[in-house]
């Protein structure tokens, strides 16, 4: 579904991604794990068109998308749920969700998807008229995910959905990610919480200073000594 080949991304003079290549097959959950500043979020931003790679190719559903602007990539069925939640604080929950479907014109489909987001996140229905800025951290994360789903994506990019949440909530969010995946959406998950990410993913890539240093099935990586030492705390 997505194939990234040898991309190089720079922030000014800083070489942030050094020849990153990986791929995602339809129906998978793939996770990118790594420490702060390794380049995980940069990879997501490059795929979704918020950043432009200097070289390399990105193909989505067989079509090259590198160098395309974000709205064209969203239109092709990829939705990016950015890091740090970033809800529209002074808009209601419902308005936030409606903006997730900004590029769609099928009113009926949008109404159906709004309903299914409310079924998946009952909290959001309770608070649909409330300003998004008044929600708790966990609710804002659910809203950000719901908003990304409103684009009816084939591929969902999730950037650190566990950031700043209590362990119990993290569990809940990850369960929801799994459910979303089971209902047919491919997921690319970026996480610092490697333990949690590896427990739900099919495959994983480990990023270090802008390079992919390890790749494999999530379960294998979770049991490898190297990973345990570096990312799983023992």
């Amino acid at each position: 579904m997505l194939s990234v080949k040898d991309i190089n991304v720079y922030y000014g003079a800083i070489h942030a991604l050094k020849g990153v290549s990986f791929e995602i097959k339809g129906g998978e959950i793939v996770t990118l794990i790594g420490a702060n500043g390794a380049g995980k979020s940069t990879i997501l931003k490059t795929i979704s068109g918020l950043l432009k790679p200097k070289s390399g190719t990105i193909e989505f559903a067989g079509q090259p998308i590198h160098g395309k602007v974000a709205q064209e990539i969203v239109k092709r069925g990829m939705s990016h749920c950015p890091e740090g939640r970033r809800v529209f604080a002074n808009m209601s929950v419902e308005e936030n969700l409606e903006l997730g479907a900004f590029l769609r014109n099928d009113k009926k489909g949008i109404a159906e998807d709004l309903e299914s987001v409310y079924v998946r996140f009952p909290r959001l229905r309770e608070r649909s008229k409330q300003m998004a800025g008044t929600l708790s951290g966990g609710e804002q994360q659910m809203l950000a995910m719901g908003r990304a789903l409103m684009a009816r994506p084939k591929l969902l990019l999730l950037d650190e959905p566990s950031m700043g949440l209590a362990p119990l909530l993290v569990r809940e969010i990850f369960n929801i990610v799994q459910e979303i995946n089971k209902s047919g959406t491919t997921v690319l998950l970026v996480e610092q919480n490697a333990n949690m990410a590896l427990s739900i993913a099919h495959r994983a890539y480990v990023i270090e200073t802008g390079k992919i240093v390890l790749a494999g099935a999530a379960q294998e990586l979770a049991s490898s000594d190297e990973i345990k030492k570096a990312y799983l705390g023992g």
Partner: peptide, 12 residues
């Protein structure tokens, strides 16, 4: 409200 989120939603 949030330029990055707006862009990620496909808003030009």
């Amino acid at each position: 409200e949030n330029e990055i989120a707006a862009e990620a939603m496909g808003i030009n």
